[in-house]
């Protein structure tokens, strides 16, 4: 059950970063923006870093998180056609 709640927060975080892709924030700052408790967010951000959705810069309380955008292949390169 705790897992499901974690997941929910995780999604919330991910959607936040997707909507604001150039966000650079510490745990404290994100807690404020998301209206969540910093200690809850800490683990969630950690998981998002493990999943390579976020990048962590620095360590500890001063660590900053930012979004890693998914890779977009330039559509001029790729053909939707039989090889």
């Amino acid at each position: 059950m705790r897992d499901e709640l974690t997941l929910r927060l995780q999604l919330e975080c991910t959607l936040f970063f997707e909507a604001n892709p150039y966000t650079l924030e510490s745990v404290q700052g994100l807690a404020l923006r998301l209206g969540r408790r910093p200690d809850h967010l800490e683990t969630i951000l950690g998981r998002l870093v493990e999943l390579a959705i976020l990048e962590r810069l620095g360590e500890g309380q001063r660590a900053i998180y930012r979004y890693i955008q998914p890779a977009v292949a330039a559509d001029s390169d790729l053909e939707w056609a039989r090889p």
């Binding site: 390579a52 998914p70 890779a71 977009v72 292949a73 559509d75 053909e79």
Partner: peptide, 13 residues
């Protein structure tokens, strides 16, 4: 699949 016949690919990992 794009209307132009090209492909757009977005991926992670």
């Amino acid at each position: 699949r794009q209307p132009s016949g090209k492909a757009q690919v977005v991926s992670r990992g």
